[in-house]
Design a protein around this nucleic acid. Sequence first.
DNA 1: ATTTAACCTACTAAATTAGTCGACTACTCA
DNA 2: TGAGTAGTCGACTAATTTAGTAGGTTAAAT
Lengths: 166, 166
Amino acid sequence: MRLTTKGRYAVTAMLDLALHAGKGPISLADISERQGISLSYLEQLFAKLRRSELVRSVRGPGGGYQLSRDQVNINVAEVIDAVNESVDATGCHGSGDCQSGQTCLTHHLWCDLSNQIHAFLSGISLLDLVQRKDVQQVAKRQDRRYVEQLIMSTGEKTSADNKAAV
Amino acid sequence: MRLTTKGRYAVTAMLDLALHAGKGPISLADISERQGISLSYLEQLFAKLRRSELVRSVRGPGGGYQLSRDQVNINVAEVIDAVNESVDATGCHGSGDCQSGQTCLTHHLWCDLSNQIHAFLSGISLLDLVQRKDVQQVAKRQDRRYVEQLIMSTGEKTSADNKAAV
DNA sequence: ATTTAACCTACTAAATTAGTCGACTACTCA
DNA sequence: TGAGTAGTCGACTAATTTAGTAGGTTAAAT
């Protein structure tokens, strides 16, 4: 079982998408900015998320990504699975041939744990997360920071060319 | 959070110790043989288990390791913590400074998951495992194999004094 | 004294993570 | 039509961790 920044980044990015849903496609550059994840790394993760049909992409200017399903129908376990190839805690991926073809002493323990974790994570949808108070607070802080940054940079570049107000 | 062979090996080895308790100290060579874990690697793991005071060692011939506490008072989470430095699922180790000093969007989610996993694993003692049917069956198979191997090797040595076979 | 087995340190190969870089393609808008 | 935006793709890299090796030292039993 591995639960590293990879899976965490994926869930965070998907949650960012969920939080900004209904405003058209969200670019990876925006997510990168808001969540502090490198753009190129996000590209890799979203390639997998797209293959798992969790997101849809729109190319060209104004393009980006959108959730391909309703927020209530995407759970955290799916997202992690998509980038991490499973939250399995066994070494034999559940097959039971852990010790030279036979089950090891603790095989069933890890199976139980895997089920436990999977049950927990698959019981949490993106909608659940979006509705959490702590998530909303952090999102608010991030959006504020994001807009400030935008004004700063556009102010420096061109004073008139101001396309995004939010 | 990492749950790899490292933590699994540690739990397996501790369970082996629990299963063969009351027969004096168990050598790492025996555990290595029965559980298919490299001796040198076991040494590293047991150095940590000893530092965490989960096992006591006896040096010299007939020496080995013993559980330092009653089986019912050692749980799986402790064992993993001892070798793995925690089953924490957050990237910030619970401190909440995940995104440049502030909590990231999904911080609380990973805290919840960590608690969930910890609660599950700390609720399982070595005694619980020893009493499980599936564990007893695997242990029986391993002991049988171990005795067979022992007879084989001693029989070959005394007859022709050749130490390398199998 | 010899053997056994814990103890300790340092090294290594392989895998994985977390990224970078550069080129290319699809699309929009002026 | 062409400039610019943003996804797509593949290859490459640095750092970290895992899993395991190797070699020696120390304590105890016979």
